[in-house]
Amino acid sequence: MRIRTLIMAIALLSASALHAEPLAIVVHPSNMAELSGDDLSRLYLGRSRTFPNGDSAIPINLAEGMPARERFDERALSRSSAQLKAYWSKLVFTGKGTPPQEAESHEEVLKLVATNPSIIGYLPASQADDRVRVVMQLD
């Protein structure tokens, strides 16, 4: 009984630790852009298509349902995933915009960002490596 309680406690702790892991917003190492939270949200809501310095920006999302995606939606965009889906359906069906492309894994984000200086992505901070530059961290 005691062991089971312990396991459960550990499971709960690690789940919440995972949940609380910060997100790293990453760009190509050659991309020296500085971003505010507002800039980030404008990029991911399709309201801006350039970095603040005027260079073109291509945001990459993680696939729907991935924990880091939900966390990003809430932290960076202050909206639930369902609200964002409704938001994008407004733009898509009026020909005013298309949602960011989605990557199926953290590794795919790293690869895409590493190959194109315009691409911006995000992933759990511990997964960012030297192929990318962390431009911002979201707690």
Binding site: T98, Q101, E102, A103, E104, L112, T115, I119
Partner: peptide, 16 residues
Amino acid sequence: MRKSLLAVSALSFAFA
């Protein structure tokens, strides 16, 4: 929303 197109898009990104 456009799952089937993702592979294509990802490819076009990969080749930049």
